[in-house]
Design a protein around this nucleic acid. Structure first.
Length: 113
DNA sequence: TCCATGACTCCGC
DNA sequence: CGCGGAGCCATGG
């Protein structure tokens, strides 16, 4: 299945505020287990404001590392911003990591288009 | 077509 | 529980 990015955005757009998903979760849900890094790349490809090519505001902050930390590579200012955005929508941090037991979104509710 | 690039993961120590 | 290394694979030049 080519064009993974658009599908990544479609799924991320379905993540409810206050919940998070790991890059690997997204890849797996799209039938591409192991393509976690590509999901991260798709996020990095988003323009300012998290807008995709269709102008949709993708809630990129809801995708984090499977360990619960927010990814720190690339733009050093994104990390703190991501954490702030998540806390504003109710996601609580235990130290520097999200408690995945409580905030990881249950993919069973997804309706893939 | 080949090759470098990544906002990743898993596993062993 | 932290670190380092190998594995993974879609994209774009």
């Amino acid at each position: 299945m080519s064009n993974l990015r658009p599908r990544v955005y479609d799924l991320v757009l379905q993540i409810p505020a206050g919940r998070v998903l790991a890059y690997g979760d997204v890849a797996g849900a799209l039938g591409c287990p192991g393509a976690a890094r590509q999901v991260g790349y798709a996020m990095a490809a988003l323009g300012p404001g998290g807008l995709d090519k269709q102008g949709r505001a993708v809630p990129w902050q809801r995708v984090i590392l499977s360990s619960g930390f927010v990814a720190m590579r690339g733009d050093p200012v994104r990390g703190p911003l991501q954490r702030q955005l998540l806390e504003e929508e109710g996601v609580q941090f235990d130290g520097d990591r999200v408690d995945l037991k409580r905030f990881r979104w249950d993919l069973r509710d997804v309706t893939l288009v």
